[in-house]
Write a protein that binds this DNA or RNA. Structure first.
Lengths: 346, 346
DNA sequence: CCATATAATGAAAAGCCTTTCGTCGCGACC
DNA sequence: GGTCGCGACGAAAGGCTTTTCATTATATGG
């Protein structure tokens, strides 16, 4: 059992810069300079340098993060505020954030907002106090500027200093609707997202625009608004029921996301409709479960992992003043055609 | 647009303890004592106290976290090292961790290990350097003690100072196997977890024990070992195929987790078998997708959220020396009976 | 041989907070 | 009246680094 200890010398006291300085018979300042490769260390002869480095390694010296942050006024930390940690959307983006942050030797700390402004503010303060040098907000309708560089995923508001990462919703709507039209669908039901969902408004607008462009008529009876914030497939179920009960004929559904699509399919199946023979369903996001659902889900894929990576890259560049603030970055969706869509019944 | 600024006074310089002290014409020490409700402040008369507090609020004073940590040698931070952020298991546990940590005014920072010892060690060092006062490892076969209090979820090794949170696997196996036997199943296939998965060994042992106890014979031909670390339903698919190709008859499958169960069902369906009419399937974990899969999944539920909460509670108690180290805490599983299991075909 | 540059290091401040200890004034008590 | 105790604060140390500036010694050039 490899005992892993906090670095301490033979006396059992913690090894600090001073103690390694004492160990090599030099001053703390000198040791610090060498260990950090500071410009002031350029006159230190090589043997001395090596002595210092060897001692530091031998004693397993680890600089005190807090003392260092205090002095340098840098923390290499970014804050992430998500709706909830457990949901598929955030966790995929966060995985991307982790990936990029690790490569850049940054750290991230997390908070949740649950679409609640107060909670958001609370975590915002907390994270800043903990030294976050930049913030990433996930799925929040951010209506304020922030005191540090920030990225909103997805972001649709216009806040100075906040970079919005957006999906090209117009293209997304095109992919979905054209795919359905190619299969002959004309009566297409739409599941609109909850207003709290940051993408809801622009997605809906894109759907309307594209429908007009390609000459598809959207029947208001077939447009259902999700008004629950549930993040299980329960999200889609009741609205699909409502759609069924409306008794307005339709042959396809473009859902707000995969979760609601799965819930809707469930409702259809219980009602005795087969997917895709009786009704085609297109989801959104391409969560892992989409491919293994039965039937597997045709869906519009968002590059969530990559969006997390991009967010960190942008943020770090701004923190380190390597680049200017950008108002918006668009990423492209992709359609994954699977089993849940098919030709309209003859 | 509410501009949220870093606290600074009218000169635009950052507001520090000294500046609020200057503002009220007192010393920094006094202000600190009052603001922290320190014992030494008990002789400060109420009017003065209120003046200080009012000034702090007015200037929006926020103590510098790093200076404070440096001085108090406390950080109120716990480190979490998970397999991967995005997967259903970790993110649910982490949601529990977040919940409990927030209530206790602790923070958490996250790392990933990907079942890789080096990566684990790297993050371990990093988190400790960042002042983590306790660690939680998720789904890692932890083979070492750690320099701070730690909790392993799930934990099966015997490390001094590490509290293992385990599911009562014996009970879990009982729930699953008895349920299947009640439906008349006798030829039950088992999907064994990947050895990297911390629960794999004890779950398998429990299955064997229970099978013996209830007089169920496990046919080695029907026991398949998962040897991929994929965390999509692709996890179960190839092994179900293998099972089918073995041509050894079976009427039910007890999968290692819901993900692999879903993959397996997929394989069965493609082969033309109906679930549960031709084969019953029991999953494990009760991830959100389980309830909305088609057919919905009978599964053994782990209280993952609660396990995260318990981990934080234990950890904080130990950090604050409120309680002694416990070697192990067991939590109870629950069976969720849904559509994927049914009586064996006549 | 003196002035000056440069190498090699030390000393000390600064970053912001907490905490211990000390001081000063004043009422109480013997 | 002297001592004691207490109320109300201030001063300063201490936590660990980083960084600037100063100092000493050596080398270089004239």
């Amino acid at each position: 059992m490899a005992e892993k200890k906090k670095p301490e010398d033979s006396n059992g006291s913690i090894v600090t810069l001073k103690s390694v300085a004492a160990h090599v018979g030099l001053s703390a300042g000198t040791v610090s300079a060498v260990l950090n490769d500071a410009p002031s260390a350029k006159h230190i002869p090589k043997p001395t340098r090596e002595r210092i480095i060897a001692a530091a390694r031998k004693l397993d010296y680890r600089p005190n993060f807090f003392a260092r942050s205090l002095r340098k006024q840098r923390t290499f930390t970014i804050g992430v505020i998500a709706h909830e940690i457990g949901d598929g959307y955030s966790s995929t983006v966060i995985a991307g954030i982790e990936n990029s942050a690790r490569l850049k030797n940054y750290f991230f700390v997390t908070g949740v907002h649950r679409h609640n402004q107060e909670l958001f503010d609370k975590y915002c303060r907390l994270l800043l106090q903990r030294g976050a040098e930049g913030l990433i907000s996930l799925d929040f309708n951010l209506a304020q500027s922030l005191p540090v560089p920030a990225v909103a995923i997805p972001g649709h508001m216009d806040n100075e200093g906040v970079t919005n990462i957006v999906l090209d919703h117009h293209h997304a709507a095109e992919l979905a609707l054209k795919h359905l039209m190619d299969f002959g669908h004309r009566r297409i039901a739409i599941l609109k997202g909850h207003p709290d969902s940051a993408d809801a408004a622009s997605r809906w607008k894109a759907v309307q625009d594209v429908a007009r462009e390609i000459g598809l008529e959207l029947n208001p009876e077939l447009v259902i608004q999700i008004d629950s914030t549930d993040s299980t497939p329960g999200l889609g179920y009741p609205f699909a029921r409502k759609l069924i009960e409306n008794k307005h004929p339709f042959t396809a559904l473009f859902a707000y996301n995969d979760i609601s699509a799965i819930g809707a399919i469930r409702a259809f199946q219980e009602f005795g409709w087969r997917v895709p023979q009786d009704v085609s369903v297109v989801g959104f996001d391409d969560i892992p479960a989409a491919a293994f659902h039965y039937p597997s889900l045709t869906t519009i894929r968002q590059p969530l992992h990559k969006m997390g990576e991009i967010a960190v890259d942008l943020l770090v560049d701004q923190i380190e003043r390597k680049s200017e603030w950008q108002r918006e970055i668009a990423v492209q969706p992709e359609i994954k055609i699977r089993e849940s869509t098919g030709p309209v019944a003859a």
